[in-house]
C-alpha cells in the first residue's frame, strides 16, 4: 500500500481556496472571529466560510482553552470530518496552557491529542494574525505541506493513548474497538497517576507565588 499523500495540483488548489471552517468556538478566542468574518477583515474573500456541521467542514479552529469536557466533543467532531482536514490551534492556551497552566481541568498542549497544523500564538491573536495564518494555510495546502489527518491515522495509538489519559475515550471515539482496547491498557497507569495527583496538600501563603516556570 502506498503512503497517502496530501493533495497537490488542482485538487490542492481547490482545497486551499475553499476552506470550510467548523464553527466550534471553545474559549474566548471566539470573540476574535466576528470581526474576522464581517466587513472589517472579511475572510470570505479567501473562500473561508463558517459551516455548521463537522461533516461539511475542512478546517477545525480551536479558539482558546480546552477543558477535558470540551476536548471530548472536539475529538468526536474532528473524527467526523471528512479527509483532508486541517486544525488551527488558536491562542496561547492551545500552545502551552496559557493562563490555565495550573487548572485541574484544562489540557495544555493541544497537539498531543489531535494533530495541529498551525498554531497562532498570542492572548488573544489579532484578526490580522488570523488572516495571516489563513493565507499561510492556503499557500501550504496548495504545496501539499499540511498532512495532519495522515499523521493522525498513522499514529492513532499514540493520540488515542494520550486522549485516554485525560478522558473516557470509549464514548467519544468513532473506532470503538480500538478505544476499548486502549482504554483498558491505560487504566493501570491512569490509576497510578491519579493516586499521585490527589495527595492532599494545603498551600501556605509563601508557597502560592510560583518561582519561575511551572514544573
Amino acid at each position: 500500500m502506498t503512503k497517502e499523500k496530501a493533495p497537490k495540483g488542482i485538487k490542492g488548489w481547490a482545497q486551499g481556496r475553499s476552506l470550510w471552517m467548523l464553527h466550534f468556538c471553545t474559549g474566548c478566542g471566539a470573540i476574535e472571529m466576528p470581526p474576522t468574518m464581517t466587513s472589517r477583515y472579511d475572510m470570505e474573500r479567501f473562500g473561508i466560510t463558517p459551516m455548521a456541521t463537522p461533516r461539511q467542514a475542512d478546517l477545525l479552529l480551536i479558539t482558546g482553552y480546552l477543558t477535558v469536557k470540551t476536548l471530548k466533543r472536539v475529538v468526536r467532531s474532528y473524527e467526523q470530518m471528512p479527509d483532508p482536514k486541517y486544525v488551527i490551534g488558536f491562542g496561547s492556551c492551545t500552545v502551552n496552557g496559557g493562563m490555565y497552566w495550573d487548572s485541574y481541568n484544562t489540557i495544555k498542549r493541544l497537539d498531543l491529542y489531535i494533530p495541529v497544523d498551525l498554531y497562532i500564538a498570542g492572548c488573544m491573536p489579532r484578526p490580522e494574525a488570523i488572516i495571516d495564518s489563513f493565507t499561510e494555510l492556503i499557500k501550504g495546502i496548495k504545496e501539499g505541506r499540511f498532512d495532519g489527518w495522515i499523521r493522525y491515522r498513522e499514529n492513532i495509538e499514540f493520540y488515542k493513548r494520550n486522549q485516554a489519559m485525560v478522558m473516557d475515550i470509549r464514548k467519544w471515539s468513532l473506532d470503538t474497538e480500538l478505544a476499548e482496547r486502549i482504554w483498558n491498557e491505560v487504566q493501570e497507569e491512569r490509576k497510578k497517576r491519579f493516586e499521585r495527583a490527589t495527595v492532599p496538600h494545603v498551600y501556605e501563603l509563601a508557597e502560592r507565588i510560583p518561582e519561575g516556570l511551572p514544573k
Partner: peptide, 27 residues
C-alpha cells in the same frame, strides 16, 4: 458581500467549492 459592505469571494468561488467537494477522499 457588497450589500454587507464586504469585499466578498471571487465570482467563481462555488465552482472551486464543487471541485473541492468531489476531491474529498472520504465521505
Amino acid at each position: 458581500a457588497r450589500v454587507h459592505n464586504r469585499y466578498g469571494p471571487p465570482i467563481y468561488q462555488n465552482i472551486i467549492d464543487v471541485i473541492k467537494l468531489f476531491s474529498k477522499k472520504r465521505a
